[in-house]
Simulated scan of single mutants.
Amino acid sequence: MSERDDQEREFDLKWADGAEHKEPSARARMLAARWKENPPGPVPFRADPEHVGSGRRSSWVSTAVVLGCVAAVIVLLGYVDFRGAY
């Protein structure tokens, strides 16, 4: 691209950014039309504790699973390195 094309493009971007009225996106228009007829109900910021996750697992169970996987990978890598030394 030439320098003149860059200047024209920059001018177009400044012109577009400086527009007084900016049209909303298609999704915003679709949601506005849908919500005009059927407004959405209130949604809490955070979910209820009884609905969080898949089941009632304690956090320590998830921690134990992750640490067990990390330990298994460390042992596996050590075994592979030990076998490769001979």
Rank of each mutant, 00 (worst) to 15 (best):
R34H: 07
W60E: 14
H21P: 01
L76T: 14
G53M: 02
V66M: 09
G41N: 08
V66N: 05
V65C: 05
S25Q: 02
M1E: 10
R57H: 08
G68C: 02
V52L: 10
V73A: 15
L77D: 10
G78S: 10
S58A: 08
E23V: 05
V75W: 12
K36W: 03
G18C: 05
A19N: 09
P39F: 01
D17K: 12
R46D: 09
F11R: 15
Q7A: 15
F45I: 08
K22Y: 01
D17A: 08
V52Q: 09
A47P: 03
E37F: 08
V73P: 06
R57T: 04
S2D: 15
H21I: 09
K14Y: 03
A32F: 02
L31R: 14
A85H: 10
R34Y: 04
E10C: 05
F11K: 15
A32Y: 00
C69D: 09
S25V: 03
V73F: 10
L13V: 11
Q7N: 11
A19S: 10
S54F: 05
A47W: 01
P44H: 01
F82R: 13
S25T: 15
K14W: 05
S2V: 06
V70C: 09
S2E: 03
M1I: 02
D48A: 04
R34P: 02
G18R: 06
V80H: 05
V61Y: 08
S2Q: 10
F11M: 12
C69N: 13
L76C: 11
P39H: 07
V70H: 04
V52D: 07
V73I: 14
A33N: 12
V75H: 12
W60D: 15
A71T: 09
